[in-house]
Design a binder for these strands. Structure first.
Length: 961
RNA sequence: GCCGUUGUAGCUCAGGGGCAGAGCGCAUCCUUGGUAAGGCUGAGGUCGAGAGUUCAAUUCUCUCCAACGGCACCA
């Protein structure tokens, strides 16, 4: 008996095998005739801290899946990149005083090494960083595509799956033609379709060339605007809505964010609001991420109703037009232009309203100005209130006290009239009556609601029957949608869809990002895109890159570098071309946010070395396959739900509309690996103690922590892993001790992939033992095989419960079942359970004949590739060489489920009242009489008893007593 | 408040209408020339509570309880 085991040799074996694979360029992929599968991880920031334990969780799972898919004959695209622009890299550079390019490159190098040690099967020829000028050249190019496009919402077209798409991005020159031909006209400076286009007699004057160019700027998907922005003084930059938390703090760093007006680049993501929601139905994404995106985009369908007042028309938006006869006031946001007008004329002080941060306390100012109800013509008073948000809907509401909780609270406080129009349920009346509901009848409750609604705690917000449907000329089954249409048809209002989503603020006042490929004429201040021949616009290398903090009007770092900003050139076909003898232009000095580079990197993997295009269309088509989304499997953290995942979808849609990519969406299947949490330890003073200095003891079944040196008892705080908690775990240290294969198994076996889990290194010995026990299976079987051991004998370690099986029959059944189970788990990325099935099988069979030995190795290969390769090489040199067709396990195929093993005998289960009694084998085609006779014997029943026979994969007999 | 997820061994998690599973931990034993380690064997569960459907429910349905996650004056 051999006493060697895997843990003794794994480090050396893994090293040499990794070296072998590297020499053979084992992971390079090329276009071939196989079906494709594209697997992608969210690429990492090359942080100075290197990989933390959370990274490998996702990476190892994608690697296992990639290896598995290759074994299933797919041509698998699997690579890695680095998201190296942006605040974190830059702030680290500022801290260390080193140029971000230097630190970034160093970090990339060290993380690449760490990744290599994990033996991920990435194609290294496709690895890049977003900071490579050859890459950001195309980031700039895509930005210019957006600058050069507008969204034609009138276009109706179909994708390759025949799904209808409303609206399409088109080249801006098309809009120029539309305006020239007056198919579109300019309204308030904005291009809109001309409804009278067919009418030859339309008398709208032709716009001038200047007017057209100005209007085009109002339609471009990338545009400059003077907007109220989220300014974060501590970061010295503006932030997008998505980068600000609900508490008004910066997502990164938790710094306060204030509002400020600035001229900024914006991307018109709002044009895609409908498609961003609608397409979700075609993607296999986790429900919670889809929901978060839907919530963020915030679609509501309703009616826009315009009320006339002496200060001008006031449009309100409502999703509940059924409550139109319950309107008793109009609420305006303090910033609403009519509110401002009224305040000015009547000397009203709105500052208290504007400054109120706590909207739970609703306050308002009575104006004494009235509008006319659109249907009844009754007078309704205008109030200026703090709880109406200026930036949602129209900034004005119709106040329906009886059917909106906010309006109810407000109106009750200011004693505004309240008449309900919807009949509530009895249950609701009982539960919400302020008084003692026991002493009144249901009829009285209904009367009270109708005549004195303020006797109730709150508004009735459910949809329900109206007291008076006749007023709407509708039957009482009318849905909200039908009522919306009714408003539309009668001309009382307009059906509209509103979105919460705002346009994407795309400028940052920082150095470490992609420069905009934009210049301004020094004389006219006119904006021009940089000609493609002059891309990339490189970042200047040597300069002071620190931003200005806490200043009122900050200057972006690039603006201080006059050598870089001032350029000479000429305008050719509307684009700027460098020319020493040309006139003076000034470069745009903002940079793009770090999200820019991550919006399209997955596309670059397909064609990473292409010098002429961001990606070749046919190549993209090959790797995208027939899916709706380009990436078949995309794995990464849920924290990017409304950031990266929303932005990248938007870019992809624009590229799709313009015909640059073949699929409507970027990511078909999305998976979020759970977070890995860990205990942190604090001493009496509340100072965190490094996990390496903590001793854990088991006291009465409870874990107690002590300081390794001072013996002080420590407080255990469960939570996130992080530098400041001194509880970070370095995956490389673990690999050095246990080997990568054991580490990979352990990471996968901790639980389902998407589940947040606590880190616990102790349990890794379980997987170490499993590998050692696998080693013994191979070693012992190999010994016997070398001695011409007979294939027909296998040895079962435990007393076999199915004693009636002959050994080989049993092995075949168990192996096929295991293979079947594991395959199903692999397909669904449930690697923890796949491993569990393998363990259960291996617990039972300690010696295997050659056919099974090889098949087991194939099943193990995606999980523990080094182990598998080592044994594959040994088996190749042995007596069973004839079965090993390839030079490496990496070329082996996944075992096939052997359906050609007809099992004449099936399991018979005997139960009494559903309780298990006995089991045996029986002929699959046995008659009921035969079955019941055998069952009766097994259950030791002599008398006649009622029974049921169920024939499935097993035959079940249930006796009923 | 709205939406969603989860309750199975001491812990972390599988499973699934018809013998309750894995790893760790725990216990017994064996090794003592892999030794602050390795191996064998074993104990452990009313499958969150209650009702319903069924010949049969841990599994399906409903109600409740508990925990977690996301969103939230969005008109």
């Amino acid at each position: 008996m051999n006493t060697k085991n895997w843990s003794t040799f794994c480090i050396d074996i893994e090293d040499s095998i990794r070296e072998l694979w590297k020499r053979n360029k084992a992971y390079e992929v090329h276009i071939n005739s196989n079906e494709t599968y594209f697997i992608c991880d969210f690429f990492p920031y090359p942080s100075a801290a290197g990989l933390h334990i959370g990274h490998p969780l996702g990476y190892i799972s994608t690697d296992i899946y990639a290896r598995y898919k290759k074994m299933r004959d797919f041509n698998v695209l699997y690579s890695m990149g680095f998201d190296a622009f942006g605040l974190p890299a830059e702030q680290y550079a500022i801290q260390t005083g080193q140029h971000p390019e230097i630190t970034t490159n160093e970090n990339i190098k060290s993380i690449s090494n760490q990744l290599k040690n994990l033996s991920l099967s990435h194609d290294e020829n496709r690895v890049f960083s977003t900071t490579d000028s050859e890459y950001y050249k195309w980031t700039q190019w895509i930005f210019l595509q957006m600058y050069d496009s507008f969204f034609d919402h009138t276009e109706v077209w179909y994708d390759k799956f025949n799904n209808k798409i409303q609206g399409k991005a088109k080249n801006i020159s098309i809009l120029r033609k539309y305006l020239q031909s007056q198919k579109w006209i300019i309204q308030n400076g904005v291009p809109v379709p001309n409804n009278d286009f067919a009418n030859e007699n339309n008398s709208i004057p032709k716009p001038s060339k200047n007017e057209i160019e100005k209007a085009l700027n109002e339609a471009r998907l990338a545009y400059v605007a003077n907007v109220k922005v989220n300014w974060c003084a501590k970061l010295g930059t503006v932030l997008s809505n998505e980068e600000v938390t609900a508490d008004g703090l910066s997502e990164r760093g938790n710094y306060p964010v204030t509002q400020k007006s600035m001229q900024q680049w914006m991307l018109r993501i709002t044009k895609y609001a409908f498609r961003l929601i609608n397409n979700l139905q075609y993607l296999n994404w986790p429900e919670n991420i889809s929901t978060m995106q839907k919530n963020w985009i915030g679609e509501s369908r309703g009616v826009e109703i315009t009320f006339e007042s002496e200060y001008g028309a006031i449009s309100v938006f409502t999703t509940r037009p059924d409550t139109i006869f319950g309107v008793f006031f109009i609420g305006l946001a303090p910033e609403h232009c009519i509110a401002q007008k009224i305040a000015k004329m009547h000397n009203l002080d709105l500052s208290q309203l504007q400054n109120s941060t706590n909207l739970n306390t609703k306050i308002g100012i009575k104006t004494g100005i009235f509008v006319k109800h659109v249907i009844t013509q009754q007078k309704i008073e205008i109030w200026i209130v703090n709880y109406v948000l200026h930036n949602y809907g129209t900034g004005a509401i119709m106040g329906v006290p009886a059917h909106d909780t906010r309006d109810f609270e407000f109106a009750k406080k200011y004693n505004i009239e309240c008449k309900p129009v919807i009949i509530p349920t009895d249950k609701w009346l009982l539960e919400n009556y302020e008084g003692d509901a026991q002493n009144v009848t249901i009829e009285q409750l209904h009367d009270l609601w109708k005549n004195d609604s303020y006797q109730y705690k709150t508004a009735y917000t459910e949809v329900g029957d109206l007291y008076d449907f006749a007023k709407l000329n509708m039957n009482n089954k009318a849905t909200i949608n039908e009522i919306c249409d009714w408003f539309n048809d009668k001309g009382y209002g307009k059906c509209v869809i509103k979105y919460k989503l705002r346009d994407w603020l795309f400028s940052r006042q920082r150095y470490w990002g992609e420069p905009f490929p934009i210049v301004r004429c020094a004389k006219t201040n006119q904006i021009y895109p940089v000609h493609i021949d002059n891309l990339p616009v490189l970042l200047p290398k040597q300069m002071n890159f620190e931003p200005e903090y806490d200043v009122k009007d900050p200057i972006p770092p690039l603006q201080r570098n006059k050598d870089w900003t001032h350029v000479k050139g000429v305008i050719q076909n509307g684009a700027f071309l460098l020319d020493e003898n040309g006139s003076s232009f000034i470069r745009e000095t903002n940079t793009m946010p770090n999200w820019a580079g991550s919006c399209w990197y997955y596309l670059r993997y397909m064609d990473a070395k292409n010098k002429n295009e961001f990606v070749n269309f046919d190549t993209a088509k090959y790797w995208s396959g027939d899916s709706y989304g380009a990436v078949d499997l995309y794995v990464g953290g849920a924290e990017h739900a409304v950031l990266h995942l929303l932005y990248a979808r938007f870019w992809h849609m624009v590229l799709f509309d313009l015909g640059h990519v073949p699929t409507p969406e970027p990511f078909q299947k999305l998976l979020n690996p759970g977070m890995i949490t860990a205990n942190a330890y604090r001493d009496k003073r509340g100072v965190y103690v490094d996990v390496n200095l903590v001793n854990l003891k088991n006291v009465d079944g409870k874990e107690v922590a002590y300081h390794a040196k001072t013996e002080e008892k420590l407080e255990i705080c469960p939570g996130k892993m992080g530098k400041r908690y001194k509880n970070g775990v370095n995956p490389m240290q673990i690999c050095e001790k246990y080997g990568v294969d054991v580490f990979r198994l352990h990471m996968m076996y901790m639980g389902p992939l998407s589940q947040t889990r606590p880190w616990n290194l102790k349990n890794i010995v379980g997987m170490e033992r499993f590998c050692n026990s696998l080693w013994r299976i191979f070693e012992n079987s190999y010994d016997l095989l070398s001695k011409n051991f007979n294939e027909n004998i296998s040895k079962s370690s435990k007393n076999d419960k199915h004693e009636n099986y002959d050994t080989n029959d049993n092995l075949q059944y168990d192996f096929q079942k295991m293979l079947n189970d594991v395959t199903l788990e692999m397909e669904n990325l449930r690697f923890n359970t796949a491993i569990a099935f393998i363990i259960t099988f291996c617990n039972k069979y300690k010696i295997l004949p050659e056919k099974y030995l090889l098949n087991l190795l194939r099943i193990l290969a995606p999980f523990i590739p080094h182990f598998a390769e080592y044994w594959y090489m040994r088996l190749r040199e042995s007596v069973i060489a004839k079965h090993c067709k390839y030079t490496s396990i990496l070329h082996e195929k996944w075992p096939k489920y052997d359906i050609s093993s007809p099992q004449q005998n099936v399991i018979l289960v005997v139960t009494i009242n559903g309780r298990f009694k006995a089991t045996n084998k029986i002929d699959k085609n046995a008659t009921d009489e035969n079955i019941i006779e055998k069952a009766r014997k097994l259950a030791l029943l002599t008398s006649e008893t009622k029974y049921v026979i169920v024939r499935k994969e097993k035959i079940i007999v249930n006796f009923i007593k």
